[in-house]
Each structure stands twice: as C-alpha cells, then as structure tokens.
Design a protein around this nucleic acid. Structure first.
Length: 118
DNA sequence: TGAGTGATTGTTAAT
DNA sequence: ATTAACAATCACTCA
C-alpha cells in the first residue's frame, strides 16, 4: 500500500473550500508557470461535449456541469487526463529549469541577458 | 526535515 | 485584460 506519510495536514487548505475571493494575476515577471491539472485536460476534451449538449450553457453551467461530470467519471476515466497532466508537469519542469537557469545567470551578472519588455 | 502556502492551469462569456 | 465557479496540483518557500 502506498505510504501516506505527510498527507495528514495540507488538508486544511483544501478543507477551507472557501469562495475564491479572486485569483491573483501573477507575481514573477517570468513566472515559469506550473503544469496543467487533470481538470484542464478533462475540460479540453469535455468542453465541446458540454457545449454540444448545452449550447446555451454559459460559463456557470459549463463549469458546474464539467466539475459534476468530472467527479462522475471513474478513476480509470480520469487516468488518461491525469496522465496528460503528468506529461505537462514534466514540461513544466523543463520550463522551470530554464527559468532557474536564467535566474541564476542574471543573478550573477547584474544586467539581465535578455530583458523582456514589460 | 517537514509543513503548507500560494500560485497556476484551462473553459466560456461578459465587462 | 480580467473575472468568475469548477477541480487538481504540486513546486516552491520557510522555520
């Protein structure tokens, strides 16, 4: 059985389940961005289905419908999406790698080699 | 070393 | 461009 060592706490954040006051835009100028989550891939595949059966459904309907279906799916059904998420995660790792690389590089040289206009 | 925190992903549609 | 529920996430940071 998989050992569940530390998973006894981080719950608090999830447990809160409070209404999102508002999503933040971003903090770092070149945020390496994270990886997409299974839900992202799931939505990409389902969004068309949801709209197909709910052409009038706006965002609220789709969002709730999507989430409802997502939970309806079996772990095996989500697996493919999770795998995609895992794949993207690896991609994100590379992104971070570059970000970390640049970061370390610019840190030493005062002036940033490449400066994006922003 | 462990804990948890926040930031991020994508959809649609309106503003 | 931004925001909003919907869900996952999980890499980073700190003491």
């Amino acid at each position: 059985m998989p050992k569940e060592s530390t998973k006894s706490s981080k719950r608090k954040a999830v447990d809160k389940a409070e209404k999102a006051p508002k999503a933040k835009a971003k903090r770092d100028p070149k945020a390496p961005k994270r990886a997409l989550s299974a839900y992202m891939f799931f939505s990409q595949d389902w969004r068309e289905r949801i709209k197909a059966e709910n052409p009038d459904a706006g965002f609220g309907e789709i969002g709730k419908l999507l989430g409802a279906k997502w939970k309806e799916l079996d772990d095996s059904e989500k697996k493919p999406y999770i795998e995609q998420a895992a794949r993207d995660k690896a991609r994100a790792e590379q992104e971070k790698s570059e970000y970390d690389n640049k970061k370390a590089d610019s840190a030493g040289s005062g002036d940033g080699g490449d400066e994006d206009d922003e």
